[in-house]
Each structure stands twice: as C-alpha cells, then as structure tokens.
Design a protein around this nucleic acid. Structure first.
Lengths: 308, 308
DNA sequence: GGATAATATTGACTCGATCAACATTGTTGA
DNA sequence: TCAACAATGTTGATCGAGTCAATATTATCC
C-alpha cells in the first residue's frame, strides 16, 4: 500500500518533470511568435467565447485579474480587442476580438498546429499511439465528466479481452492457474460458434473508453433455462455500479427472451459477485466442494425464477 | 490520414491546455513554499548531481545562464549553496548544497510528495490507474530510451490478449469476421490444455510494457514435424524487427527440440508475414483457395527443413 | 600563439505572478 | 429604502522569469 503509493507519487512527479522541460513550451510559443504563452492562452479564450468578461477568463485560466487587466490593455493598444459595456450590467466589460485579433489568432493557431504536428510526426508510430492514448486518458481524468458506465454488445476482440482480463484478475487475486484462462477461452469460442440471437446475448461494460466488465447470457441444456456466465468487474472499477448494471441487463433480457429460470455457476470465494446475485434475487441452490484452477474451491449454483 | 492527423494534433493540444491549467502548478509550488517553480527545479538538480556547474544545470533544464546565475546568487545569499572552483578547470565553478540547502530540499520534497499524494488519493481508483499508466507512457515516450523489443514466455492473460489483438487486427485490416476470433480462442485453449514443455513453446514480444506480437510453437500430427502458429505483430510496432525476432526464436527452439521440419499455415493476403517466412528460409509448399472468415482467401502451407 | 569555444556575470528590458488598495456597480436583506 | 456585501475592474509596488547583448575569463584546437 504505502510502497505502491510512494511509487505512484514518484511516477507522477517524474512525469511532471518530463513535461515541464520537454512539452511545457509546446503550446503556442513557437519561435518568433508575437505572443507569450500566457497571452496565447488568453487569446484562445477570447476567440472561443462569445463576449466574455475579463473575470470570466481569469477564472477559466486561474489568472490574477490584475495580470489580465494589463494584458487586455496591451491587446487594446495593439488593436486586437475591443471593449464595450454590457448594457444589462454596467460593471461588466464585454471583450471581443477585432478583425486583426482574429487574424492574429488564426496565424497563431496555424503555427501551433504545425508545431504540434511536427512533434507528432517525429515520433515512431509505436510511440505516437502511446502518447496520444495517454493524452486522451489524462484529459478525461482531469477535464472529463465523471466516468459513466455504459453497456454495449460484442465487438471484435471482446472475446479475447474478456478472457485476458478475467485470467489476470483471478490469477492475481486468487492465484488461479492458467486452466481458468483456457476454460474461459473455450467457453467463449463455444458461445460464438453456437450463437443464436434469439437465445443468447452478451454485454460489455465500458468506462473511459475501457472495458470494465462483462456478462454473457447463454441458453442452458434444459429448455426454458438460461445461464448467466462470466460476470466480472475490473478491480479498479468497483463501486461504480458496473456489476449491478450487468446483472440487471442479463436478467431483463432473459425475461424478454421468455426464459423461465436463470442459473449461474460461481465459487464461494467470489463474495462480491455473490452479493450482487443475492441483491438481484438469485438464490443459492447447490454447493459442492471441488478442486479447480489449483485451489480447493466451493462451487455454487444460484438460480433466479423468472416466471411472473 | 490528414483527418486523423488533425484529430491527433487537437488531442495533444487539448491535453496541453488541461495540463497547463490543472497540473502545471503541481510540482513544488504548494502554498507557502519558499521556492518558486523554477527555483525548485534548480534545487532538485543541485540535490541530484554531484558538484554540478551552473552550465550543466542550465543545459539540463533549458534555462538561460543569466537567469541561473542570478538564482544561484540568491541561493548563496540565503546560505543554501556553496561555490568552489574546480582545481582541474579554473573557469568551472562547482556548486553544492550546504546543510541548510539539503534541509530546505528535504522539506520541499516532503511537501511536494504530500501534495502529489493528495492529488492521487483524491482520484477514484479507476481514474488513478488511468492517470498513472498514462504518466508512465508519456515519460517513456519523451524520456526513455528507444523502445526495445523483448521476448518472454506466457503469463496469465496472454492467451486472451493474443486472441483479442489478432481479432482486432484482422477485423480492422481485412474485415475478417468473429469466426477468426473464436478459432484463435479455441486454438489457444487447446494449446494450453495439451501443453508439453518438451514439445511446445510460446513467445510474447513486448515493447514499452505492451504486447506487440506473439508466436506459438506446437507439435504437429506427424512426429518430427512442428507447427509455427498465430504469428502476429501490432501494426504500430512494425519496422522494429518484432516479427523477425519471433520467427527466429520459434525456429531455433524447434531445432533445439529435435524437430525435423517446421510448418505453418497462413493466407496469401498477409504479405508482410509471408516476407518474414521467406526470409527465414520457409518455402511455400501448397496453396488452396478457401472461403473463411467472410472472405475468399488463399490458404498457404509453408515449410522449413530443419535437418542439418 | 592566436583563433575559437565554453563558462560565468552584469545590464537592460518586458512580462508573469502576487498582494494591497481602491473605485464602481449590482444584489441582498433588515 | 438604504446600508452591507459581493463582484468587477484598475493601479501601484515588488520580485522573479525570460531574453538579449556585452563582457571577462579560462581551456582547447590548430
């Protein structure tokens, strides 16, 4: 815990140092620009808002009103902005770019884009895709909304990814052997090959562009009985309601497809999953000790009556 | 291409703006710090180098020598550093922290770490892990060495991840259906269940902490004949020699295990792979048209004689 | 031994960052 | 309605950041 925390802090600080020395100058201060970084940021806000007040921009950029006042004055002297009073609010001064201001902004944008483009193209494809997906992630962490969980159907790669994530999860948390991974792979291959849209279904839970959970609805051997299989939730996505949403989707669809009962197999150590099943109305119907995946486990069968 | 490029530029610029306004102040400028960000960076370099010269630090931080000279003078006034001449080089002035300087640095480090720690702990686990892996990626892109390709054996999750990556690769590049994914899942489940360390093997190629390719060595039906299976290389890792290394490892191991011949199945559209096989000495022995994965393909069998 | 390069300092100037003081305008509540 | 309060905006003051030019000193390369 604390060792991991220290490593995380060191990682983030190293990132910060790298960024400060190599990328901080990236935005908008190409050589020969008539604008400083701060001026460029203010210009950006002026161009991307409709008649903002100075205070509005100061809040957005976390700048001192004093500094902004002086920068705006310089922009006025350079003929880049105009100021007019808000008729509805005499104290507010509405700022807007002049024609010259818009032209200067367009020139700045063009050369900034070119500079960033040059940087991107100087990277090998491998490094480029790493940088870009990292940039997206950081943007969403700090600038995005709360990550919302969405459910979707299967896409290419999902069978494998579900296999991989479950194998990693249960191997690291419970020490299960590779037998489990092979079992999941086979279950999913069978699921695909025998797929019947009138009887089977699957859901992938996503948050922040990443898979964070899954569940599969599969017809059972007996008619009228479906199975809920391979429910899992990423450990860092717990507490976001992922499991509940997945179980609910699966139960609703089973009912919709006319099944009379929904069954599932699990093992007793997966206590979080058991809680979910109980909350969804499942009842444990059978328990049998078993040796699987390198451990002594207690298999459990849970069942949910779907008849009205 | 250009649309993608424009999106990439926009992504990176958005990241830069986010960073400037939310994270830029993160390192070392907690409220009440006796050091500015620039001073803190210089102090860091002073503490982490042995008797540096001012010029050395200026180069590392890309600072103006003039600015550094004045900062060092302030540090001298505050009793944080001492200067002594380099006996071997009269023009060089060796800088080092005094006891007070080291104490000030330690205090600064402690509060910076605490500030970063607070930031990290304010994030939900999901966001935290996203941020940290993104930070690692960006560090390695800009600060790391050239990403080197390493081969390793199988770990939990690899069977699934190989399935997923191949499915995504061939579905996006050639439009293959999910049948291919199910086939790979089944092949890998079989591989695991029938694994014999004296006859089978597998390699995962990694670069930058990510899987970038794989290959499997599997015993064939006839004795003395092995199969090379499921070779793939990530599209953004091409040109790094991944495929060549994987094929070489597989061929060498097949020879080591006493196989007399190595065979492989592929399809003609995978031209990059075919080039690799030809370069490794494989010869195409049979070609048969076939309809698989939603497309008309030409199956190919390639063979490599391993007898001396 | 003289040209050249690297190191370090100083002057000059502008902008960034912050704090305090203050004027102006709109809103709130007794 | 009027005083208290909050928000907006400006100005002064001060220090550091960043940049450029000029200069002194020392080592190194032909």
């Amino acid at each position: 815990m604390t060792a991991q925390h220290d490593r995380d802090v060191a990682t983030l600080r190293a990132f910060n140092r790298t960024y400060t020395s190599r990328l901080g100058l990236l935005d908008a201060t190409y050589d020969g620009s008539p604008f400083t970084l701060s001026e460029a940021r203010i210009l950006y806000e002026l161009a991307n808002r409709t008649s903002p007040t100075a205070a509005e921009i100061a809040r957005a950029l976390r700048l001192d009103p004093a500094q902004l006042s002086r920068t705006v004055k310089r922009f006025l002297d350079r003929g880049l902005v105009t100021v007019r009073e808000n008729p509805a609010h005499g104290r507010h001064q509405l700022l807007s770019l002049t024609e010259e201001g818009r032209a200067a902004f367009a020139a700045l944008e063009a050369s900034t884009r070119a500079a960033v483009g040059t940087l991107i193209e100087s990277l090998a494809p491998f490094q480029r895709s790493r940088l870009l997906s990292a940039a997206v992630a950081i943007n969403e962490v700090f600038d995005g909304d709360e990550p919302t969980v969405t459910l979707r159907g299967l896409r290419p790669g999902d069978l494998g990814l579900v296999t991989a994530r479950q194998a990693i999860l249960y191997s690291s948390e419970y020490g299960w052997t590779g037998d489990y991974e092979a079992l999941v792979a086979r279950i999913l291959a069978d699921f695909h090959d025998a797929f019947d849209p009138g009887k089977d279904d699957a859901w992938i839970a996503e948050a922040g562009g990443r898979m964070v959970g899954s569940v599969f609805l599969v017809r059972g051997e007996e008619p009228g009985v479906a199975k809920l299989r391979l429910l899992y939730v990423e450990s860092d996505a717990r507490g976001m309601g992922v499991g509940g949403q997945l179980v609910a989707a699966c139960v609703a669809r089973a009912r919709e497809l006319g099944y009379g009962r929904l069954e599932l197999w699990t093992v007793s150590v997966l206590t979080a999953a058991c809680r979910l099943y109980r909350r969804a109305g499942f009842v444990m119907t059978r328990e049998t000790p078993n040796h699987r995946f390198g451990h002594d486990l207690v298999d459990q069968i849970w069942s949910l009556d779907l008849t009205p």
